[in-house]
Design a protein around this nucleic acid. Structure first.
Lengths: 354, 354
DNA sequence: TTGAAAGCGCTAACAT
DNA sequence: ATGTTAGCGCTTTCAA
């Protein structure tokens, strides 16, 4: 088996400069007066030449801290995850912290069957303890979609949930404000004169969908528009269900459709094309997620962009705050604002017939 | 600053079971006859109770090997990268190896200006040495698109390039077979009766584009179709240039368009819609990359899927082979096959007028 | 200004 | 069957 390829150690630097390892360590760690000016110069020179850097394992073991936080991703290939990771990395870089990433690959492993099973619990626990065995000082857990997570970390390790939240609210979590976005979208449609707006929600059980629905109702209420239960349909987040729901809504004569995700909106679009209805002229359409598919349409689909990078950044702030304060944080829920993009798919409502 | 939260060490297990640390180590590492049956049971029991796992830093430091390979990503948020990472993880999991991921965030850092500058070289070197300081046994470098990389790793550390390749072919690299895919796509179009096929390449300098072009020419040649330079245009990979190129090609009367990526194909689609030309009926269209936007169209765009997971898997095989053999590998270039998806956007050519 | 020594948690060679 | 010891590479206290 492989030994480590040749890498310079502190002893090499010590030997080549004729001082002790202790002195090299002191000098390289910037301790003033650890050696004469000449020695200092030489130590730096030799260290440079040998490309010396302290062995990270040895250093962290000795110091009993790693300057590292762990990230657990439920699945790195889910489209939102990398951008959240990026936000975490950004803050950590600013703070001189390092990252250790553990990807659970839940999708590949369990065929996208993501309820909290005992099997999952074992994997969670394992992944967490693996990171702890590497002395990470805290962990950010990134869900693949917003939902409650039963798993709680052991041993009071500093922990933050991003894009999901703990069933028992014992640790901070970072989400985005679905209700506000739902409100803003609906308000935008109302301001374009729409009063008969079809909603294609996700499944009733989805918390995201519920929050968006609340936002939409609030906007309707404020505008004095009577809520019409029959024009609120519950889809399955996918294109097919978008198509089917669109058929019903179009039959009911809505002038605008707010689909709660872009895939659904894409299905709506397809239905409109098939019926010869021009999106952005005959009907207004809004999606959610701001996937790159929305720009593929002519006119492009209006949509809502979740603040992924910011969620990562915020999560990192929270984890470092926990680490530094050594106390649980006062505020648990952190909700960040989405960006609403009104694009060509949103047109004014036709002159009211009523 | 944070000390490590309370975690059981081997000493704790030793103390609670009344044996020495050495015995605990021996028992837990499966050394037969290291202790009496009763002791063995007890050691396992206590270890379990305390959730003991060996401190990874201490263990690796001691053993001078980490059972870990490093992954350097140029940018984790580029759409192809996570799937490649996944493939690597899959193989490593099978082999009992761990992963350490370092994301250079080239996009965020340098605004997508990705030539090999000295600035980059410093970042590469730094990232590599950082991983080496953690005793990774080898490194897989994942480019964000296929191109030659000037950077070579130091100290003969086992190294593999994925989705890119080293300017000096001193290390193995894993790509996908653009030429073959270009050939297959063109052949598929020809078999549908098309003889006047427009190509929208990427920039002339792109190696991917060149290879796809070679494949296309081969197919034309085999079919006895005269290569027509005027129906080969060089775009910029984006939607706008796709639109513009499509205008020209449609004016020239092509019956099929092979766009060398999906964004370009998306621009072509937009142009066709604007002109009232039905893709999949009046004209055939092929893209490349198999982004999720291709399914958003009705009919969906035919496209080519690069074997991302497989590339990752292969890279991992190659890095472990290097690590285990302690020798450079004989074969440097590894090219994997893409999957070609013929979808509704491909129709038969109209009856020949010539 | 410099270095010897101890120890982080672990494993392995070598006693007993 | 079990333990003692040494040492991986590093930092830090303390003494010189």
């Amino acid at each position: 088996m492989q030994e480590v390829y040749a890498v310079a150690t502190i002893k090499d630097v010590a030997r080549l400069t004729g001082v002790s390892a202790a002195t090299v360590s002191n000098v390289l760690n910037g301790k003033r007066g650890a050696a004469s000016e000449a020695k200092v110069q030489e130590i730096f020179r030799v260290a440079q030449e040998l490309h010396y850097r302290p062995n990270s394992l040895a250093k962290n073991l000795k110091l009993q801290r790693s300057n590292t936080i762990g990230i657990i991703t439920e699945d790195l290939t889910v489209f939102n995850t990398p951008e959240i990771v990026n936000g975490i990395e950004e803050y950590c870089e600013e703070q001189g912290y390092e990252i250790l990433l553990a990807n659970m690959r839940l999708f590949k492993r369990y065929n996208n069957n993501l309820t909290d099973t005992p099997e999952h619990a074992v994997l969670f626990e394992n992944t967490t303890r693996n990171l702890m065995a590497k002395q990470v000082e805290g962990i950010v857990y990134i869900g693949y979609h917003c939902r409650p997570i039963a798993y709680l970390p052991p041993d009071h390790i500093p922990f933050v949930y991003a894009y999901c939240f703990p069933k028992s609210p014992l640790y901070p979590y970072v989400l985005f404000d679905d209700e506000k976005a739902g409100y803003q979208v609906s308000k935008a449609l109302i301001e374009h004169g729409h009063r008969n707006i079809g909603l294609i929600s996700g499944p009733l059980a989805s918390l995201n969908a519920q929050a968006r629905l609340r936002g939409a109702q609030k906007a309707l209420y404020e505008a004095g528009i009577l809520y019409n239960a029959s024009t609120t349909l519950y889809g399955d987040w996918n294109r097919e269900s978008g198509y089917q729901c669109a058929e019903k809504l179009l039959d009911m004569g809505v002038t605008a459709i707010f689909a709660f995700n872009d895939m659904t909106a894409s299905g709506v679009y397809a239905c409109c094309i098939d019926r010869g209805i021009a999106v952005g002229r005959d009907i207004a359409l809004f999606g959610y997620d701001n996937l790159n598919i929305v720009e593929a349409y002519v006119p492009p689909i209006s949509s809502v962009e979740p603040p992924l990078r910011e969620m990562g950044y915020k999560s990192a702030e929270l984890i470092l705050a926990q680490i530094r304060s050594r106390e649980p944080l006062p505020t648990m829920a952190h909700s960040l604002d989405c960006t609403v993009y009104v694009r060509g798919s949103v047109c004014a409502a036709p002159p009211a017939a009523d």
